[in-house]
Every structure is written in structure tokens, then in C-alpha cells.
């Protein structure tokens, strides 16, 4: 699946992943292409520089953050590669101008689940990051308003973590007053 030398359909024009590999060759942990969908796995410290590069390079112009979510790999056995980290935060970028997509994945450690925010670059990241915090308990450094978005404030734990008991029921919360 790992494939570092991707081919562009049009000769002479680099795909977004190829541009990324050119600029951040030493910082990309892994990358692959599946039926034209490009994915790059990068370290958590390089996230902001990579994201800024994707957004601000005129030849790519990824102006739309389509989705931001996370995956919990606790108890994960399906992969060919054993995961050394617990979470992966996944970013889906889209360029309206060039009709191109790229997926960026960031491995996150269980002990210090903290990633830099992208909410100052893409406004849509604001609520997505709140959702990831709510469901997975991953913090976003620099987020202006990191509080729960789907669950209520009194909710304990993070419901989509794999170690959250599926049959756990929390207190019924009383009237608003």
C-alpha cells in the first residue's frame, strides 16, 4: 500500500501529494494513493506547517476543510502494521479551485492527546475540533472555545473511545434551572 512515487495523470503537473513530498520529504512518515485518493501521514509537530503549505500554496489552494475526525486504534488488530499509537486525527482537505482532495493523518499518543488547532486557518475546524474533543478527548492547542459540542457539560468521559463501556448510562440531567 505504501507508495512514495505517485504518478500524475498529466505529465509535468505534480499532484498535491507529490508537491508535499517535494517540500516535506523528511517529515512524511508514510503515504499512499488509492484510486486517486492521496493520503499522507505526518508527525504531530509538523501539522501546522503542512496545513499552512496546503492552504497557502497558490498551485494547490486547499481552501476547504471538508472533514476532521479521529480514529481510536485501541484493540485494533485488523491492520498489517501494528499501531504504535492510540489515536489518529484525520483531516480531509479539498481545493475548490483545482477539484483536488488530500487526506492528512496525524498519529496521537494516548498519554498526551494534544494536537495544534487549525481553527485559525479554516473556520470549519472550530466545531470539528470540538466534536473530536467531545467524542475522543483529544485536545486542540490554541482552540478559542474547546468545550463539548454534542454531549452536555456534565457528561463524563468520551463516548467514542473504544474503552468507553457501550452499555454505560450517565445520570439523567435535571431541569435547566
Amino acid at each position: 500500500m505504501t507508495e512514495n512515487h505517485t504518478t500524475s495523470k498529466q505529465p509535468g503537473i505534480l499532484t498535491p501529494l507529490q508537491r508535499l513530498q517535494e517540500k516535506f520529504s523528511d517529515k512524511i512518515i508514510e503515504s499512499h494513493v488509492f484510486r486517486g485518493d492521496e493520503t499522507a501521514v505526518i508527525g504531530l509537530l509538523n501539522l501546522r506547517s503542512v496545513a499552512r503549505f496546503l492552504k497557502e500554496t497558490p498551485e494547490m489552494d486547499f481552501n476547504f476543510l471538508m472533514d476532521l475526525t479521529a480514529v481510536d486504534y485501541l484493540f485494533y488488530t485488523g491492520g498489517r502494521v501494528q499501531k504504535e499509537f492510540r489515536f489518529e486525527v484525520v483531516y480531509h482537505f479539498f481545493s475548490l479551485k483545482f477539484n483536488k482532495r488530500i487526506r492528512i493523518k496525524v498519529p496521537v499518543d494516548e498519554k498526551n492527546p494534544q494536537v495544534d488547532t487549525l481553527s485559525d486557518l479554516w473556520a470549519s475546524a472550530n466545531w470539528y475540533e470540538r466534536e473530536v474533543w467531545d467524542m475522543f478527548g483529544i485536545q486542540f492547542k490554541g482552540h478559542p472555545n474547546l468545550k463539548r459540542i454534542l454531549m452536555y457539560d456534565q457528561f463524563e468521559g468520551h463516548a467514542l473511545r473504544k474503552d468507553y463501556p457501550f452499555n454505560k448510562r450517565q445520570p439523567l440531567i435535571g431541569p435547566i434551572n
Binding site: N167, R169, Q170, P171, L172
Partner: peptide, 26 residues
């Protein structure tokens, strides 16, 4: 919700009641 009667899923957890809040442990 702490009552065991009528729970088809058979969850029989410990219950604690603090004021208005009823809690079911898994």
C-alpha cells in the same frame, strides 16, 4: 431507571441517587 423490572437488556447495575440525578453504573 434503576428498577430492574422491565429492562429487557438485563442491565442490573448499581444505582445511586443524588438529589434529582439518578445514576446507573454499567
Amino acid at each position: 431507571p434503576c428498577s430492574k423490572i422491565g429492562r429487557p437488556d438485563g442491565i442490573q447495575g448499581k444505582c445511586s441517587t443524588e438529589g434529582k440525578i439518578k445514576h446507573i453504573e454499567p
